[in-house]
């Protein structure tokens, strides 16, 4: 592998980082704007104005109840990002300590912790979501929980693998020799070193979360009306597809744009932050 080919690849990946962060920033900006206000109330119905094409009053037209599609799509960004962010936070809050714990202690506890995460993985995701819905009722919180649960083993594994590979590194051995406790070592030395890896993983899980939230809301398990959401908009649009394909196109493209942005950002971040790649480059 020549240095030359790496610099080209870096340039390319930087490009993807730049594009990804621009797209993501765009979505976040829209989501924040929607929190302050949308052009029109995304829940306000005007049945007389239903199914209108794009016009000056409604840039993207109106839906089956005469709601403004643009405002709904904007408010949908807020909901989508909020659920996805919360699910990632949930995964990190439980997964990272679990992974660290398993890596530091080793032995039977290590085995148990990793078996538990295998075990969670074994449950078919959607079916678990359906059962959760039946027990706790549908809603944004439930969607967050259903997605978050599956983020736990992901972060546990990433943390575990990375932390395990640190065990033999000089600075960890030195810290251990100096008599520091395992928890201290984990927090002071290991965590900062695996942080880049976690950031990359978080970006990936964010984009998966957006897709999962859309799917859950689409089949009626996620965000509930009147709260707007891209998945729900798609569900509403389905019976109208022959009449107004526009209604299915708008939320779909929003999802693709957001997920694409996050994936590009994740790829770029991995190249810039991944210590393994950096080492190889150096």
């Amino acid at each position: 592998m020549t240095a030359h080919s790496f610099s080209v690849s870096r340039l390319f990946h930087h490009r993807s980082f730049a594009l990804g962060s621009a797209m993501t920033a765009c979505v976040i900006l829209v989501a924040l704007m929607a929190m302050i206000g949308t052009p029109q109330d995304p829940t306000a119905m005007d049945i007389a104005q239903k199914m209108q094409g794009p016009s000056e009053a409604h840039w993207l037209g109106t839906d089956r109840y005469g709601r403004d599609v643009l405002s709904m799509a904007m408010a949908g960004a807020t909901v989508s990002l909020a659920v996805s962010f919360a699910a990632v936070a949930f995964g990190i809050a439980f997964g990272v300590p679990l992974g660290l714990f398993a890596a530091m202690r080793g032995g039977a506890l290590d085995e148990a912790a990793m078996r538990i995460s295998d075990f969670i993985f074994a449950f078919p995701a959607l079916i678990t979501a359906i059962m959760l819905r039946e027990i706790f009722g549908p809603g944004a919180l439930n969607a967050m929980l259903a997605i978050g649960i599956f983020n736990v083993p992901v972060f546990a594994r990433v943390t575990y693998g990375a932390a395990l590979s640190m065990q033999t590194r000089d600075f960890v051995v030195a810290a251990r020799l100096s008599g520091k406790g395992e928890t201290r070592i984990a927090v002071d030395h290991i965590l900062p070193n695996i942080l880049p890896l976690l950031i990359v993983q978080a970006t990936i899980q964010l984009s998966l979360g957006i897709l999962a939230e859309a799917a859950l809301s689409y089949i009626g398990l996620g965000v509930q009306p009147p709260a707007p959401s891209w998945g729900r908009m798609l569900n509403d649009a389905q019976t109208l597809m022959a009449v107004a394909p526009r209604l299915a196109l708008v939320p779909g493209l929003c999802i693709v744009f957001t997920v694409l942005g996050l994936n590009l950002l994740g790829d770029g971040l991995r190249d810039l932050l991944d210590p393994r790649l950096k080492r190889r480059r150096g």
Binding site: A214, A215, G252, N263
Partner: peptide
């Protein structure tokens, strides 16, 4: 990149 970003049920709707 695009393929990963497209939700499969939306793609299905578009195919239909």
């Amino acid at each position: 990149q695009l393929g990963v970003a497209i939700p499969n049920f939306w793609f299905a709707m578009m195919l239909v």
